[in-house]
Design a protein around this nucleic acid. Structure first.
Length: 752
DNA sequence: GGCCGGGGCATTTTT
DNA sequence: TGCCCCGGCC
């Protein structure tokens, strides 16, 4: 251990070995915060603490996994594996499952992700016959989420005069009723959303002191990473756990608090010393990541914020290049310039594409950048698409799993009852839903005996429902005996999902099938690992309990070859790159237009820019455009106020690299737009129209001709019906039988 | 059941 | 502009 301590600087070492009481470690950007946490845990183990008595909370699964690996490298895997290390959500969902009975939930409760909960909210708004323009599901969802993060239950909400009045003022008086119904429906379905995991933990600890005491005794030392991004619910959980013993270490950087829109409360870190009297403050101020110019520029920026813990971050690396400022005429030129710069710099610096990142405020900005990179054949990889687990085909099959583990799961039920199509339409589902709400039971319970619950359906439908019910019952029966991987495969096949996906021969169809296979492969691995750990039976419920919380870019499977990284600044937090481009530094974009009235929000935007700057190790280029295409129109832009916040000593303007004689040749807006329109991306989009145009002349099609259809594949024309615009062909497809197709849409191609 | 077009809309998103 | 949701249509 001593040799490890020797790897730390003095302030890091002090933070590691201090164990007397509550401790706040303010860790500047790039100051080796993870290293401190890692060594501190190793140190605690060395002091004789049992691994199972250490609770370490992180914000991402990735962070937890990486830290665990690093600790395992020091103290050995056999010790490290007993640590309670994970995200707030995963640790407390584990505890909630164990203690579920105390709060009236089943221990196999489902976790609703954001999409599930939004769907449920949408359903409730409809059921209440409210206008979904006034009650926008997204807005309702975030109001409910905020309430939960503030530990306001629906009961408390109802009784809170301020909230009720504010809802009336905002013309959404029914919010409390939506919240109430939403919560009851979750309970009915045996489901918790992400916020519930924290809210219910608090309720559990509040109402069951004996349970709380057990965990207080169990966790002798609590550590929290990224403390600046905790919300009130998380703060209170930690506070409760540490009531009896003072061994708490929180690490964070108030200057990097950028998630208030998700409920994070910067006051948790700012006021930590008030909440924990006797707390000792440690500051990690030496930045090991960036050159002096970058650190100094970032300091001069963040200095303009009022609310912060005083600190002086410094670098002892070389002075390095100044932050370079690129002013461009248009967003198009900005993208073009950045792409050109990357190519030049890569050549000059002799580094790789993967050493470059382009950071932006909003995802919408990526499009032009992608185009510009593509034109120059610069490989790139873009973060921020749908995560693997959010893809439809993956969610669909997982919904089957969910339903098998917890048949009352309403959202999963609705997703799969007619998927693959089995002739149970919306009307039938509506009838089931009405019965469910009349009798206050789950859809699954209605499905057991639809007629008895007064569901008015014909014999055919009743048969289809029974078939679905029996299929599910057969799955459920196997839950206790079959291991997760086998049951998963069984379900994927028997549900008809595999068949349906294999019939779709389009590119997307193939990739969907691949994703499904990827998931199944993942379950096999999951089982193997669990078995190696000594679990005899690994059930689908075990898999589900973990996978529901794995929404992040967790699958490193996609080759991270040599590519430029494109992502939002938010997504870049915690990462570092030798060369960073920050684009779109304009008023109303960065800082965003939505934050400009609120000084606290502007401070958060400034912190966001601080995060962006401090991602850079050697070179940081910042750009803005004078005009930008936004929401359907070109607008003139003003350079961001944040650019003026950076001390000019650390900044240098750069010409956009066009020879003076060509300045007048800069593309006009219309030229620029024209060029965009001529890009490959656009062409693909235009394609369908071209097809349709060609297709208006389908007179060449004749009976018995062999034709090809994009989705259905090859087939033979059997007949024609109708005239003119409504002319249809009856085609007998090899793969999926006879279909009637409107010729104007079908885009049939004749096969020679 | 799926596909089109119209209308409204438009940050950031570790779980 | 582009995306998402809904209603209308075969």
């Amino acid at each position: 251990m001593e040799e490890y301590l020797a790897e730390l600087n003095e302030s890091q070492r002090e933070a590691v070995v201090y164990c007397e009481g509550p401790q706040l470690v303010v860790a500047g950007a790039g100051s080796g915060k993870t290293r401190v946490l890692t060594y501190k845990i190793a140190w605690l183990l060395k002091q004789g603490l049992r691994p199972s008595s250490i609770l370490a909370l992180t914000f991402t699964n990735k962070a937890a996994r990486e830290m665990k690996e690093r600790i395992a490298a020091i103290v050995g895997e056999s010790t490290a594996r007993w640590l309670w290390m994970g995200t707030f959500h995963s640790i407390f969902s584990r505890i909630l499952r164990r203690e579920a009975a105390a709060i009236g939930f089943p221990s196999n409760f489902t976790i609703y992700d954001a999409a599930d909960s939004k769907n449920l909210i949408r359903t409730i708004i409809k059921e209440m016959q409210l206008d979904d323009k006034t009650y926008r599901p997204g807005m309702v969802q975030s109001r409910i989420s905020n309430a939960k993060n503030a530990l306001i239950t629906w009961r408390a909400y109802e009784q809170n005069k301020e909230l009720i009045e504010s809802d009336i003022r905002c013309k959404v008086p029914e919010l409390r009723e939506i919240y109430k119904r939403y919560q009851n429906r979750c309970l009915q379905a045996g489901a918790m959303d992400f916020d519930d995991l924290l809210l219910q933990t608090n309720i559990l600890f509040r109402d069951h002191p004996e349970i709380l005491a057990r965990y207080q005794d169990a966790f002798r030392y609590v550590l929290v990473d990224e403390y600046q991004d905790t919300n009130f619910a998380q703060h209170l959980i930690v506070k409760r756990l540490c009531e009896k013993q003072p061994h708490l270490c929180v690490v964070g950087d108030d200057a990097q608090s950028i998630y208030s829109f998700r409920g994070a409360n910067i006051d948790n870190i700012l006021q930590f010393r008030n909440a924990y009297p006797g707390c000792k403050l440690f500051k990690l101020e030496r930045n090991y990541r960036s050159t002096q110019n970058i650190v100094n520029a970032a300091n001069s920026l963040i200095d303009k914020n009022r609310e912060q813990i005083p600190k002086h971050v410094y670098s002892e690396k070389e002075e390095g290049n100044k932050i370079r400022l690129l002013a461009t005429y248009s967003d198009y030129e900005e993208a073009y310039t950045v792409a050109a710069r990357i190519q030049e710099m890569k050549f000059a610096e002799r580094d790789k594409y993967q050493d470059y990142a382009i950071l932006y405020r909003t995802n919408a900005q990526s499009r032009l950048l992608e185009e510009a990179l593509r034109k120059r054949n610069i490989p790139y990889r873009i973060y921020g698409g749908l995560s693997f687990y959010q893809r439809k085909e993956v969610k669909d099959v997982i919904s089957y799993f969910r339903l098998v583990v917890n048949p009352h799961d309403e959202e999963a039920f609705k997703r799969v009852i007619n998927y693959p199509a089995r002739g149970i339409g919306d009307t039938t589902v509506q009838k089931l839903a009405t019965a469910a709400s009349t009798y206050n039971i789950s859809l699954w319970q209605v499905l057991q005996a639809p007629l008895e619950y007064g569901v008015n359906i014909n014999k055919g439908t009743a048969g289809k429902l029974a078939a679905f019910r029996e299929m599910l019952a057969a799955f459920i029966e196997k839950l206790a005996t079959l291991p997760a991987d086998e049951l998963a495969l069984f379900i994927a096949r028997e549900s008809g999902l595999v068949n349906m996906l294999s019939q779709d021969r389009s590119t997307e169809g193939i990739s969907k099938l691949e994703n499904l296979q990827e998931l199944l492969k993942g379950i096999v691995e999951f089982c193997e690992i669990r078995k190696e750990e000594g679990n005899t039976h690994v059930s689908l419920a075990d898999f589900l309990a973990e996978v529901s919380l794995l929404t992040d870019q967790d699958d490193e499977t996609d080759e991270r070859r040599d590519k430029v990284t494109l992502m939002t600044v938010h997504a870049a937090k915690g990462l570092e790159f030798p060369n960073v481009f920050i684009v779109g530094m304009e008023e109303d974009l960065f800082p965003s237009a939505m934050s400009k009235e609120n000084p606290r929000a502007v401070e958060e935007e400034r912190r966001l820019f601080y995060v962006a700057l401090t991602r850079a190790e050697r070179n940081c280029l910042v750009s803005y455009a004078r005009s930008r295409y936004k929401n359907g129109q070109t607008t003139m832009c003003v350079p961001s106020r944040f650019l003026r916040d950076i001390d000019s000593r650390f900044l240098e303007a750069v010409s956009t690299d066009r020879p003076a004689s060509r300045v007048s040749d800069k593309p006009t807006v219309s030229e620029a737009t024209h060029q965009i329109a001529a890009s490959p991306r656009r062409l693909t989009r235009i394609e369908p129209t071209t097809h349709t145009a060609a297709q208006t002349d389908y007179s060449n099609l004749q009976i018995d001709m062999r034709v090809w259809h994009e989705r259905f594949g090859e087939g033979v024309i059997r007949a024609f019906e109708g005239e003119g615009n409504n002319r249809k062909a009856v085609v007998d497809f090899d793969k999926c039988g006879q279909k009637q197709l409107l010729l104007k849409f079908a885009r049939l191609k004749v096969i020679e």
